[in-house]
Each structure stands twice: as C-alpha cells, then as structure tokens.
C-alpha cells in the first residue's frame, strides 16, 4: 500500500483553565489512506469535531495542540496555525453542518464559487473559473445552473445550499474533504439526496473524505472505515462492516445497542437500551480506561490504561477484554 494521505499519531488538545486543564483530545491516532473515506463517530463530548477543527487549524488561540508525528501528503506538519491555514482551502476543504454559515449572504453563488478558486488557480480567467463552477454545480445535482449562478444564498433551499457548499469544497480539488455533520440540518428526503451526491463523489473523485457525525447510519452509508471516539480517545477503529456488525469495545457495543431498529421484532413494553452515567469531565479524567465508570464489563484492571488490541480484520480497539 502506498503512503497514507494523512497520518497523525498521538494528537493531544487541551485548554488551560483557571485552576485545571481540560484535556479535550487525549492521544488520538488517525490515518486516512488516499481515496479512502473515514468516518469519525461519537456522542457529544467525544471530541470528534475538535479533531476536524485541529486539522483545519480552526482551534482557538488558547488551545494547546501537540502530536508525536503528523504528516499530510508525505510532508511532516506540526498542525500549527500557519501550516494548517496554508492547507485550508487548497489541500483540505470543509463542508459545514449549516450551509448558511459557509456562504456569504451578500454575494451571488456564482461570485462565491469563482472567488473560492482564485487561490488555487490564480492564473485562470474569471470566465473559465465561472465555467468550471457551472459544471461542478450541475455535477452535484443543482438544476437550471446558468440561472442559479446569479442567485443569492437565501434564494436556495436547505438541500440546494448544501449542494452549493459541496460544489464549493470540490472546486479547489482538495486532497482531503472534511464533512462535519453534512446532513444533520436537512430533512429526510433531502438528506437522502445529499447522501447520494456524496456517495457518487466518493466513487468518482480521488479525494479522501473524513465524515464527522453522530449518526452511525450516515457513516455506514458513506465510509470505508470508522473511528469510534469516546471522551477524547479512540476506543475502536476498523472497517465499517467489521466494527458495526461485530463491535469489540464495550462502548461501541453499547452505542450500537442504543440504535433503534424499528423493523426488528420488539415488545412495546420493553425498555430501550441506554448507557447509564455521564461522560467524564475533561478536566478530571480518570487514570485508567476512560469508559470504565460506565462499562458493564469493568473489572479490577480497568483502573490501568487498557492495551490496544488488534483483531485480524484490520480493527484495533483499546480494552482489557480479550477478543472472543
């Protein structure tokens, strides 16, 4: 296999407070192969969005970021502010949850789609950039492109806006496309359309994709492999079909058990599955396994940091429990 597009080892992000330090990410490893689509799944407080923001250099000035090693496209980087800014908009592009925040309400879609390409293709004429934009818009399924280019963002519906944002991200021909909850704000039938667009892109472009979402359904739909995060750590990582059909880490198991399948046979009077307890405070993280306090299978050893185990199928997970 060729070298991965993105390889980050031991990513830490923390914020120093008055009398304590909040550790938002604690030793996260991420590898994204070329052309690969990776899902980052977790609940609130898992740090999944922090990972995306760290890659883009969008964390605040007060964030302390460190890695053992970080390489993007064969070059070592530090994930420092300057380097990330240089990557943003050319090598890495982002699709945000709320398309309205990504578009400037004062300019037409066409102008914005042209301007976004200027940094990437400084020598090309406005005309050819405009033509490129039109083609791309049509590609992501916006009808009546020629007229729509002259419209303002508020004249688009939510689903169309999200397509514009996707087109915008693709126009710079990024090597990595980060999608942060790309369909959360959309209605179900519109979500299905956007998922279809993203899925088609994934087959067609050579760009790698990082999909950040709380929705395991979306990740299952769009990704080759999945990283399951809990409280700032990666608890399990592997191919989507392996992790979702045979989860190993107790958290992944518990989370999947909470997914409701309305088609399964069930008894209405039966309780729904939950995960009792709460995510530990990032300022006071426990010494051992981060999930121990909520884990149904915890035992004495869980007060120590669990080892990272591998199963044959390209999956790793961090738990004291042996693979069955």
């Amino acid at each position: 296999m060729t070298q991965a597009l993105l390889a980050i080892e031991d990513l830490h992000v923390s914020y120093r407070g008055h009398d304590s330090t909040a550790h938002i990410l604690d030793g996260v490893d991420i590898t994204i192969g070329r052309g690969q689509s990776v899902g980052l799944v977790g609940e609130s407080g898992s740090g999944k969005s922090t990972v995306a923001f760290a890659l883009l250099g969008l964390l605040g000035d007060n964030a302390e970021v460190s890695t053992r090693r970080a390489a993007f496209d064969g070059r070592e980087t530090s994930l420092g502010m300057d380097e990330a800014t240089a990557l943003r908009g050319t090598d890495i592009a982002m699709i945000f949850q709320d398309p309205m925040t990504a578009l400037n309400p004062m300019f037409t879609i066409g102008t914005q789609l042209v301007d976004i390409q200027r940094r990437r293709f400084p020598r090309q004429s406005r005309r050819s950039l405009w033509a490129r934009a039109e083609t791309m818009l049509a590609d992501v399924g916006v009808p009546d492109v020629a007229a729509r280019m002259h419209r303002y963002p508020h004249e688009f519906s939510g689903g169309m806006r999200q397509r514009v944002v996707i087109a915008m991200a693709l126009l710079v021909e990024p090597k990595l496309l980060i999608a942060d909850e790309p369909t959360t704000a959309l209605d179900a039938t519109i979500e299905a359309q956007v998922v279809e667009v993203l899925d088609r892109l994934r087959q067609r472009t050579s760009a790698s994709m990082l999909v950040v979402s709380h929705s395991m359904g979306l990740i299952a739909e769009l990704c080759d492999s999945v990283i399951v995060m809990y409280a700032g750590t990666v608890v399990e990582h592997g191919p989507v079909h392996v992790v979702f059909s045979r989860p190993r880490h107790p958290y992944t198991r518990a989370l999947l058990a909470c997914e409701i399948d309305p088609y399964a046979a069930f008894d209405l009077s039966q309780d729904l599955a939950t995960i009792p307890g709460t995510v530990p405070d990032p300022a006071f993280r426990p010494q051992g396994c981060i999930f121990a306090s909520r884990c149904p299978a915890r035992h004495d050893r869980c007060s120590e940091r669990p080892p990272r185990r591998q199963t044959g199928e390209g999956r790793t997970y961090s738990c004291w429990q042996e693979a069955a």
Binding site: E43, H214, L255, C258, E259, D271, L272, T274, I275
Partner: peptide, 10 residues
C-alpha cells in the same frame, strides 16, 4: 445523544 435518548423514552 443516542445513549440518553432511550432514558427519556423509557
């Protein structure tokens, strides 16, 4: 979050 959604419904 999906882990607490069940709590409320229960």
């Amino acid at each position: 979050d999906i882990s607490v959604q069940g709590d409320l419904l229960n």
